[in-house]
Structures are given as structure tokens and as C-alpha cells.
Write a protein that binds this DNA or RNA. Sequence first.
DNA 1: CTCAAACTGTTAGTGACTAACAGGACGATA
DNA 2: TATCGTCCTGTTAGTCACTAACAGTTTGAG
Lengths: 233, 233
Amino acid sequence: MSEGGQSLRERRRVETQRMIQAHAMRLFAEHGYDATTVNQIAHAAGVSSMTVYRHFPTKEDLVLHDGYDPLIASRVAARPAGEPLVRRIGRTLVETTRDVLGPAAGDRPSPERELLLARLRLMIDTPALRARHLDSQYATQRAIVGALLGEAPDPEAEFRVWVAAGACLAAMHVALTRWAREDGRADLPGLIAAALGAAFGEEFGRDSGGELGEGAGGDAAGGSGRDAGEAAG
Amino acid sequence: MSEGGQSLRERRRVETQRMIQAHAMRLFAEHGYDATTVNQIAHAAGVSSMTVYRHFPTKEDLVLHDGYDPLIASRVAARPAGEPLVRRIGRTLVETTRDVLGPAAGDRPSPERELLLARLRLMIDTPALRARHLDSQYATQRAIVGALLGEAPDPEAEFRVWVAAGACLAAMHVALTRWAREDGRADLPGLIAAALGAAFGEEFGRDSGGELGEGAGGDAAGGSGRDAGEAAG
DNA sequence: CTCAAACTGTTAGTGACTAACAGGACGATA
DNA sequence: TATCGTCCTGTTAGTCACTAACAGTTTGAG
């Protein structure tokens, strides 16, 4: 999808980016992020290190580069405006994740799923990447706020949108972390819905009638996560 | 407080740390974070750059160094165990902030307040610091989870604690950002309570009887935010 | 007083990242 | 087809955060 149309230069540029990133991810998986130098990546990709830096401004961007923000922003803006903020943002996250990972929640490895898993694994246990990942999550938060605040300069409303977006993304981050720690065995959209449910005591699983029940996700997150939780400690 | 008691070496060590950090913050405020080198900081403090690195493992730690995590952890563990998770964590954040900044919420500048303001200002608009700050917030989240999960290895309960802590800290982060953008004019604990209220639809302002009503929280979020309109575009 | 541990400075080195210059490939135009 | 401006790439030299290893000094306990 959306592969052609651009000029030859454009296609070559995208191709080079993908090649460099693929070599980088392979080397990171083999030797670890810190132990891999940009020079090694450049040499493996058959280019100079300057070329790497011209395509990816920092070494961290070789892992963090994904274009989900505009997708999430457009989708959250498309949801009914009358919906409560948290539900509007939360369901957008659940459904966008479901569509990105593919319609089926089965165990067959889709390339998108494997790439996301590999990136999450690196981002979780490499401190520099974890920090940058959280910052990119902050960029997502900014994108959501921008999409929901197109023409409403009310500072109090803006405050509420910032809070809702931040809380929803924080919940999703917990789900992402757990999903990666389980090597992607659970159903990620279900996990995100369970996390949002645990935070806000609502139902984020299905838009209307929940015919799927709990399926794969409920197993990992523990049921439908309806109870907002008396403390366990 | 808690200045004495340790050995002479310990006191000198703390003293050196404070001196280096003070010079660093001053230079950062004067010339900006990126434009200030560690060598300049070391020279201003009258030490070598290696000494700086031995006290602060990275340049970013010169700004991010604060010891609030164990305080928050002990306080959240001290709250009644029967309380719902979000309320337990949220109120801990509000009250700890109030106690750290001083009992009164007035406009008189306490040194703790000014230092927090200066640090937040740097952390908000310096990308590297912002990322590291979000990672330190993640460390706070881990501390809260650890405090609330002392001896309960239930993975489902752990998941809920992670989500609750993450969502509460995300709400607090919005409050911190807005507070710093307003140059600390608003009441920070009230702002945090308002953010938590906006996220979870509860009351986080006062512990028991809410005689203050919405005064501090609601007003701070809406009314005093005069110049926050730029982000909407 | 003696000695181990801690603190500091110096030196040399790695690696991410930038600036500046030069050569080659692309794409539109005469 | 030939020309020319633009984009892409490689090379070089340099800055800066950060580390490792060695040496000298100070501190505190026996």
C-alpha cells in the first residue's frame, strides 16, 4: 500500500532507510544496542556513517522510528465528539492497535507484530532507548491533544485533554510492556483494553456488543478487568 | 534537615555535590543546557571534570537529581490498604507535594520551590532532559509498585498497580508542566489534585471533609492559566 | 603511628554527532 | 542529446559526553 506514485529519488530514499534500519535492528538483536556502533551498522549496510545520520538523526531513531502518531491523531478526531474524553482516546488506542497488528489476534507471526516486538524488547531494557521511547510517547500525547483541540482555545478544556491523553497512554504503556515481556503471546488490543479498564473502571474492549468475550487477552490480564481494584498489598 | 550524623567524609561529599549542582544549574540557566559543557561546570566549581562524573553519572543527572522516590514510596505504603488504588496513589502524590513545597501555598519563594521550578523549566524544553525526566518518572512508578507489592506476587494485581501508578503519574506530569509554564503562580498540590480529578472523576483535594471545595484545584486549572493558549494551533 | 579505603587529578581513548567541502546521480529544460 | 541546478553520498576534521587506568593525597580506624 502506498508504495508508488513518488519520484524515483523518493523511492530510493525510502528503500535506503528501510535497508539501514533492517541491518540496525538485526545487529541490535545480535549484539545488543549499546555494543553496536553506528559505524558497524553503516558498514553492514554498505554505506558511510554520515549516510546513516542523514536518514536517522540519532542512533536511537533507528529503533524508535514509527509513523503511528498521525494515524492515532486522525482516528481520535474521527470519533464522536460527544464521547467522554477517556473513552474516546482509549478506544482509539485499542482499535488502532488492532488494525495495525492485523485483524486476527492469532499466534501467526505477522511482520508488523515481530518488528513491534523487537523494538519494544529493546526499548524496555535499554535505558537510553526507554527514555527516548517515553519521550516519543509524549509526542503522541501532543498529537492527540492537537487533534482534539483544533479550534478550542479554552485552557481548562486543554488541561483536561492533556490529562486524559497522558493517563490513557500511560495505561497503554503498561500493556505494551507486559505484552513484550510475554513475547507477544497475549492479545495486545485486549491487554490495552484491560489496562484502560483497570485505570478508569470502564469497558474498552468492544465498541458495542462484546461478543468476543475474553478470548486471548483476558487470560494474560486477568478476566475482563472490570473491577478497578481494591489495593492488594 | 538531617544534615549531621554522618561522618566527615559523608558531609564533604554531600557538600561537594551541592556545590557542583549549584554551579551547574546557574550555568544552565545562564547559557542553556546544551551550550554548557561539563568542563565549564567543573571549572566553575573548581574541580576536574572527572570529579563531576564521579558525583553525577551523567550530565543530565545534574538536573534530574532528586530524592523524592523513596519518600513517595514510603508514604503510599503507609496509607490505608483498603483504599482504592488510584485514590491511594493520587492522594499520596498531592500530599507529598504539599509537604515538600512547604505548608503554605502562598507566593513567597521557598528555595525548594525555586529549585523545582528551575529544574522543571529545563526539563520541559530540553529534549534530552525531557526524555530522561520521563524515564525518572518511570522509576518513580517502579518505586510505587514496589512499595505496594511487597509480598503479593499476584500478576493480575501487579498489573493493576502498574496501571494505576502510571496513570496517576501521567496526570501529575501534566500538572507539573502547566505549573512550570505558569512560573509557579498556581498552587501545585491543587493543580495535581485537579488533574487527578479530571482523569478519574474523583476528589483528590483534601483528605476527608472537603471544606475548601474546588477553590484551589478548579481555579488553578482553569482561571489562572492565562497564557496557555499557544499549544492549540 | 600505620595502613587500608576513599577522594581527586591526569592522561588516553571510544563513540555519538556536526560542519564543511567535493564528487556523482538524478530530473527538468533548451 | 547536452546543460544545469538539486539532491545524495563520502571524506575529513573536529567537539563533547563518557570511561578506564594509573598516581598522589586525605581520611578514619586500629
